[in-house]
Design a protein around this nucleic acid. Sequence first.
DNA 1: ACAAAAGTGTTGTCCTTACACCCATGT
DNA 2: ACATGGGTGTAAGGACAACACTTTTGT
Lengths: 235, 235
Amino acid sequence: MKHIGSPKLTVAVDCIVFGFDGFNLKLLLIKRALQPQQNKWSLMGGFVNESEGVDEAASRILQTLTGLTGVYLEQLHVFGGVDRDTTERTISVAYFALIDIERYKLQLSHEYAAEWFPVQSTPKLIFDHDQMVEAAKKKLQYKAALHPILFELLPSKFTIPQIQSMYDAIYNVSFDKRNFSRKLLSTGLLIKLNEKDKLGSKKGAFYYTLNKDKYQQNLYKILGLIIAPEHLQLL
Amino acid sequence: MKHIGSPKLTVAVDCIVFGFDGFNLKLLLIKRALQPQQNKWSLMGGFVNESEGVDEAASRILQTLTGLTGVYLEQLHVFGGVDRDTTERTISVAYFALIDIERYKLQLSHEYAAEWFPVQSTPKLIFDHDQMVEAAKKKLQYKAALHPILFELLPSKFTIPQIQSMYDAIYNVSFDKRNFSRKLLSTGLLIKLNEKDKLGSKKGAFYYTLNKDKYQQNLYKILGLIIAPEHLQLL
DNA sequence: ACAAAAGTGTTGTCCTTACACCCATGT
DNA sequence: ACATGGGTGTAAGGACAACACTTTTGT
C-alpha cells in the first residue's frame, strides 16, 4: 500500500438521551429541521468537523439542538454500514446519556424542538436510529445491573419507591420492595433527609440524597446491584 | 444550520489482538511498513474506504497485515481527538480480538511482519496506540470477569491449570486452584477428555474441550466468572 | 374506619471462601 | 523415595430470596 491520499468520509454523531420523570423511562427525540427526512423524528445528530474531537462534537451537537450542557455522554457504538444513511455514505458514532428530566426542564425550553417520549412508545425514527436506541437500551440495562449509574436519572431529592419504579421500568419486572430497599441502603450511597414526599402516597415517603463522594468512588466499581446477574440475558 | 456539503474526515481502524500461549498473555504488533513512522511498532491499522463498512474494513485490514481470517473483532472505542495523529487529522475506530496463538500459527507466517509480545513488555507504540492497548486490557479484564470469553484464547484442547494461568496472568493475581477448578467446572462448559498433558507436570493434567453449544448459549449471559465483581476496580 | 402505600424483621437456603490432604509420576 | 504439580473434600460464614405484618395518613 502506497502513501496516497487517504480516503475521506462523512462522520456523524448521534446522541441517545434517557431521562426519568418519576414514573416512566423516557427518551429525548427531535423533529428534524433539515432535509432530507424533514419533520421526521430522530436522535440528536450532526457532523463532526475537521477542527474538533469526536467527543467534543457530540457535546456541541447536543447543546445546539437542545440547549443541554454539562451532560455526561458516553460512547455507545459506531454504526458504520455502507447503506445506513440513505442519502450519502456516512458513519455515525452513537453516544448515550442519562439525565434527570426535572433538572434540565428549564434548559430544554420551547426554543427547541426536542421532546420526551416514553421508551415503550417511541415513533419510528429515521435511518438506523431505532437500532441505535435498541443498543442503548441494552447497554443501559447491562451497565445499570453492575454500576450505580441510574442515579444520574434522579433528581437531587428522591424517594426509594421512586428509584424502584425506575428499576422496575428499565427491567420490566417488579422487584420485592423489602429486598430492594435493603440492598439499596446497604450500598451506603444514600443519605436520608427529614422531609417526606407526599405525592405518591398518603403516608409519604422519606426523601434521600446521593452521597456524592461515595458515588464518585463507586462509579468505577462493580456492585452487582439490584438485579441478579444470572437473570440478565444481554450482552 | 444549512444543508451545505458535510465535512469529510479520514477514518482509520486499529486492531488490538490478544493471544495466549499457555503461559503468558500476548499482544500482536506489527512493524510499520509505510511512512510516517516507518519501522516503528504499531497496532494493525489502516483506512476505511468509501465503499466498505467500518467493521468490514477492520477485517480486511487485519487480514491484509497478518493473513488472519475469521477472527472475531469487537468494537472497543473511537479515538477521535484532534491531535492524536501527528500527521493529519484522523479518527480511529479501535477493535479488539482474542485468538488462540497455536491455532493461527500457520496463517500468521513469516510473510508478515507481525509478532507476538508479552503484554507486560511491549515496545513503545506510535501515536496513541499505547492508550488503545491500555483500554483494551481493561475491557478484557472487565468482560472476562463476567463472560466466558477467555475460551477464545485457548486451543481446542486445554487443561485447567492452563486456564488458571491465563486468568492469573490477566488479573495479576493467583487464584486458589481448588476454588478455581470447582467454579470453572460448575459452568458445565467443559468436557473432560481421557488424554493428559504431561508437559506441565509429572502427574499430567487432564485435557478438556469446550462444550461449544453451551458456550454459544452462554456468551450473552453474565456469569460472575472466577473473580468476584467487588474486586474489580475497572470500568 | 378503611384503603393505599411505606417501612421493617426473620428465617432458611445456597453460594463462596478458606483451608489440608492424597494422588500420580518422572527423576 | 522424594519432589512436583494435579486433583478432591469439608466446614464456617455471608449473601440473598421469600415471606407477613405494622405504620401513617388522606378521604
